[in-house]
Design a protein around this nucleic acid. Structure first.
Lengths: 214, 214, 214, 214
DNA sequence: GATGAATGAGTTTTCATTCAT
DNA sequence: AATGAATGAAAACTCATTCAT
């Protein structure tokens, strides 16, 4: 599945990229502050540094802005994960690094991640699949990292358990952004990473024990 | 902290309760279908079975409806959890029952839970704390159930680990509603309950091992 | 074919009728002055004596106003014609009366008729047929009046000639509104009626002569 | 009265003519399809084969395009009529030829004629007279052709009757374009020409009889 | 207590026109 | 001469809220 094209009236591709970057940056701030629905297109234009007319030279509907924002955030997180996947070698250590790295990106982009999760549902039936696909891909990356550990006999897990574990890692990462108001009272990022990594990995190792006990 | 009062013009308390129940029922359906922002007050009035004028006899702003809805959903989930807490006796078995029960309510109310999580951020600074408090209470219930196991020597966990585990249980429950489009492809509710319970509890038991190793 | 329904949010039918009459009156004046496209909905609302919000309680789109206006004008002209048709008795005299009456309504409603002809094309594919049908009905009334003369041996015309003559009467009436800037320099309404009636009726009688000569 | 000047920034007259021809051709198609108001200047530029910037090198406002289009259509019809006038010799035959020729141009340019009549009212107070003048000229040509017949004793009509007859011919021509949706169901172009010519000329001849009878 | 007509501020989007390149 | 990105005024339409009945 290719990226969904957002139509622009302006032809100069380089300019389109530049203006859209301005736009995403401006919009994220506003979405964080007041949410997608309470943000007006005029505000987005202003925050992006151009007029309302110019805004509409680069998108067709307000929803396009949301799509662009979500897409960009996913890309950022996804890129970082990809790097870990590329260097993962099937050791538990590389899995831990992957998890820690992922949690750290989420921490850096916590506002963005938050916005994305609170607003995706506002995407039309049209754009939603493109965004959800990105998510599936990311969970898939964790599956691969774990799979390598399994192949490498570092872990012994069924397919189902691999999937669920990957899913859990993904979710616990998001939670750091999602429930920070509650979590940050108790833990620093590094504490959280360590605790969750323990719980996650020990969970997996136990699962493996259980299997061997059957 | 007491419940936030939503002002009504009508005095008869019994009537207020009745009308608001109609309202919540109608509104939830609409919020599930189109989200809070895309639902109009007229639609809410219609779905509730009375006129727009009457609607405003029982609330003051549209946001009040959202608050009422969120509050009601939390109450439902919370009530069920409370029962488990009341009967929990410090055995691992009662913890497992608590988890399973919680996951099942979430499954029953999955649409409602979803709506709530997607829309809470639309609550004003004013109403938000009242809702978040409910959430803290619920996590607190799990903490208590786990604590009893610890007191009972069924588990050996630090305060931090108790808190984090309670938090994780809570989150994994929500995930069943949140990510069902992805999870339901792989697991039935009962599968999910079993797998997550294993991962969660084994995670805790391992953590306990780790501590003893220090 | 029934009238096209223009949806109103307001339920009181009597009120709907009243407000729409206000609306039509206000809109016609504006359309005459600046045309449909150059007239804004706000102006229509103001000219109708209510707010923009109220306007939209009685219509759904700006085009609805145009449809209402066109429909109303046709109805007025058509009603008058219907009376003449009802009393027509197959004499040349009653045909002349019909023509004269028709020309006089057109004169009274000249602004309205003008507007209608300049703006119908702005009606959507959806509404157009309903308006054109009205026109066909009106031409049909003239056909009937002429047919009665033919049955009565006052005129001797083929079906085609009846149709064309009816059409010509209809068109010459419109022309009085359409080209008044040019015609009024030369003729008073009564002059125009007399001259056109002569040309039209003598045309028919000649046509009859021609047939008999074949 | 001279032609209204439409200002161009470009000096090269030949180029101006060429670009404007492209423009008129592109614009007519669009106006036929969606009307003047619903056509954007961007669309006109595109249909003309150049950029929006270039478009504005050859006109000053969107309305200029409409004026140019109307002017061009009138010129085409008018040119054809002029030829008939030049060769008219005062016989009924040449009158008939004139009528038939005129009806045929209207048929060829029916879309254009239609557009013109539906959109002239959109011309500003400034441009309108220039267009109406063209129309008066054209009616004048018919007056002249008829007058020659009168001078030639082929017809015996008062000045008023000549004017009205010329006017009627002109109008019936337009009607072929205007009401083709209704007329084409009944007649072919040639049928229409024959029938109308009969009615028109016989009308005139009768009128002449009537006069002599007074 | 219930109703629903009235309100108008606020929203998204379009598009004629300009002007630097 | 040609281009097309930038502009912002203006347009249609929505909807939470009020208040007279």
């Amino acid at each position: 599945m290719k990226k969904r094209e957002v139509q622009a009236s302006v032809k100069d591709e380089r300019l389109v990229k530049k203006r859209r970057d301005q736009m995403i940056k401006g919009a994220v701030t506003l979405f964080i502050e007041k949410g997608f629905h309470r943000t007006t297109t005029r505000e987005i234009a202003k925050a992006s540094g151009f007029s309302i007319g110019t805004l509409y030279e680069y998108i067709r509907t307000k929803e396009d802005v949301l799509y662009l924002v979500c897409d960009s955030i996913y890309d950022q997180v996804s890129d970082r994960l990809q790097k870990d996947l590329d260097t993962s070698c099937g050791t538990l250590e590389s899995l831990k690094t992957g998890i820690a790295d992922y949690f750290r990106v989420v921490d850096e982009l916590q506002d963005e991640v938050l916005v994305m999760y609170q607003e995706v549902k506002s995407l039309s039936k049209d754009a939603l699949p493109y965004v959800l696909k990105k998510e599936i891909e990311m969970v898939g990356m964790f599956e691969q990292i774990i799979s390598r550990c399994v192949e490498n006999k570092e872990l012994e897990l069924t397919e189902d358990q691999i999937k669920m574990s990957a899913h859990n890692i993904f979710v616990q990462g998001q939670m750091w952004a999602f429930r920070r108001w509650s979590l940050k009272k108790m833990y620093s990022l590094e504490d959280y990473i360590q605790l969750q990594t323990e719980l996650l990995i020990q969970g997996m190792r136990r699962a493996e024990t259980l299997i061997s006990n059957i």
